[in-house]
Design a protein around this nucleic acid. Structure first.
Lengths: 356, 356
DNA sequence: GGTACGAATCGAATCGATTCGATAGTCTGG
DNA sequence: CCAGACTATCGAATCGATTCGATTCGTACC
């Protein structure tokens, strides 16, 4: 219904013809790369306007130049779950800022894990980023390596060609546990994020040391090991998702028991899980931190939570920017190495000396 | 440091040469489009394996076929803010599901609004989606139209070439307000989302009828008009962001006044804002719904909220899928028209008869 | 006045595939 | 035994730009 539907696409050739110059000259006008007389440039621009030319075709340009201006951002789960955690969102945001400044766009790619469909085979990208710690191996990596596309990751996938931003998950989580021990807590428990891509559905469940060691997700595994370093006899419960509802369920599982068996300190692997645990505690009539101490991980902003969590401070936006930086350097031909990303324990009001 | 860095990229030509067939035959093997003898196909595949060929170059393929397999998903703000609302995330997720099924990927594009840099000029996309209601006009639209790229939107941008999913914002919000009137409430107030891309920073503020009429964001404007249809004398407050913190600030502004002036019913334009208002009320010692009734919009899942909001039910995932469907039909050459998306009032426990 | 130089422009090769029409070879049936 | 149908393969054109080396032209300098 538009007044004049263009019958065929306008190309640089058409513009050049109308301006009375060669295609190469017209190209120079748009790329601004070569010396072009002002008058000529103006004629070309006028012709482009007349013909409604929208600029050089990005595909053709990409083919010739060998770069597409897009970076694949790979997430494992459905977007809904991947970005429900404010921490993931912060990382994405930081990454977006950095890439934006480089004129790169993000191609959101879901890695379903079935080696079958390869969502990347059909797309031209200049680099790939795995911004969230996922499973240790991804079939996508082999493909990317074969295409000689640089890869940046946040702890996963584990592969020699992936440049990583590395967090000392184990030590950090041990710090949180040690903090509780220092406060006199003796019965500690731990709530993990999912240990594998498809955790057993249903309510949170207690997991064994062996299951920890075999966990497919490195971040969950390392944090659990850090907890065990400090509290070797502590109970460990796996949430099937790292969100408030699962955290609350895990909290109820741990806390809805006779007082003598009840842990007094709970180390959660994420702030959302910690918030859930706190909700569980309070709904059972237990006060935080008087009766129960709780720690989180990430230090995200939860305006609806009436506590300041004791947690591991991990600035997500900065992490995302760092990922972006590594991407830039790889694209510039540099050879950056894995980069540590420091995190620290932040004291809040959800931990206090053990009761009694 | 990889053992054998390929000196030059492997192309279809190399594979064809090694397999002893023509380029065209090799192409047929990968696209599976033409009749190829099993033995030949096998030889080609073997050659590809030998040479570490990662499949046809997506850029070249895109150029020849005229489609890139990517869809631009345009959001206005920084990603961090755009997807902080679970509703936005749900829409994105539904859209992702639908596009995934079509073999399309999402190119996340931030529309900064400055007509200067055009993030889309450099990228090949087959369609563009504006999944969240944003400002009425975007300079990107003209560019997309010139490139004859189909566009789908959720209420914005307003342009003849954009196919929309349409929500009766005004009527829906009026329903919520009417519900409060039916319960006997006489002093009503309204908390709006930002009315324009860059709302005055600082705390929420009361806005005039004129500012409503001039609002750049159609959804905020229409909802406010719906509120006014029912409560022409109600107070209206604009939040500078649609999140819990701003909702709480707006709530305090409205409720921290002498009881005689205090509204007994507050209609918020989003669930997050409503949750914030509830927090403000409770921190002032007011009970919801006994003292104050509050309504939201969207019916998102807020596991941390100890209420079931009375709200407008707007299934975000379904909305996203609908956007995906329209995209599919446009790409298939169909000519779909704007599609209504029904929303309904859902009663929860945050509204009750007016006190006294 | 002729040569050398720089600026502006152009022609043609190239990026790496897809696809159409042509050709060679195989099989069926009358 | 040959016309007709069908299968497998190939050559060449094409998608729409970018870019390198060559060409043209005017000017400055000796």
């Amino acid at each position: 219904m538009t007044p004049s539907r263009q019958t065929s696409k306008v190309t640089l050739k058409d513009v050049a013809a109308r301006a009375g110059v060669s295609i190469s000259t017209a190209s120079l006008v748009f790329s601004g790369r070569g010396p072009v007389a002002d008058a000529t440039a103006e004629r070309v621009r006028q012709a482009a306007t007349d013909l409604d030319y929208a600029g050089p075709d990005p595909t053709a340009s990409a083919l010739r130049q060998g770069r597409s201006g897009a970076v694949a951002v790979v997430v494992e789960e459905r977007l809904l779950h991947a970005f429900r955690d404010p921490f993931a969102l912060a990382v994405l945001d930081g990454l977006a800022q950095e890439l934006d400044a480089l004129g790169l766009s993000m191609l959101l790619v879901a890695d379903h894990g079935d080696g079958e469909s390869n969502p990347l085979a059909a797309h031209a990208v200049d680099a790939a980023v795995f911004p969230l710690c996922g499973r240790a191996d991804s079939s996508l990596v082999d493909h990317l390596v074969a295409r000689t596309i640089p890869i940046v990751g946040a702890g996963a996938p584990a592969h020699g060609s992936v440049v990583h931003v590395m967090v000392e998950e184990r030590a950090a989580q041990a710090d949180a546990a040690q903090h509780l021990v220092d406060l006199g807590h003796e019965r500690l428990a731990h709530v993990t994020m999912p240990l594998a891509p498809t955790p057993p559905p249903g309510p949170p469940r207690t997991v064994s040391r062996g299951e920890i060691a075999d966990a497919a997700y490195a971040d969950a595994r390392e944090r659990a090991l850090g907890f065990l370093d400090v509290a070797p006899t502590g109970t460990i419960v796996e949430a099937s998702r790292a969100d408030v509802a699962e955290g609350e369920a895990a909290g109820r599982l741990l806390l809805d028991v006779p007082a003598a068996e009840r842990p007094t300190g709970i180390v959660a692997q994420s702030d959302l899980l910690a918030a859930g645990v706190i909700r569980a505690a309070e709904s059972l009539g237990l006060r935080v931190p008087d009766d129960i101490s709780v720690t989180g991980f990430d230090a995200v902003d939860l305006p609806w939570l009436d506590h300041t969590l004791t947690t591991i401070e991990q600035p997500g936006e900065a992490k995302g920017r760092l990922l972006g930086n590594l991407t830039r350097r790889l694209l510039a031909g540099e050879n950056p190495s894995d980069t540590p990303f420091p995190v620290t324990l932040r004291l809040g009001d959800t931990t206090a000396p053990a009761p009694h």
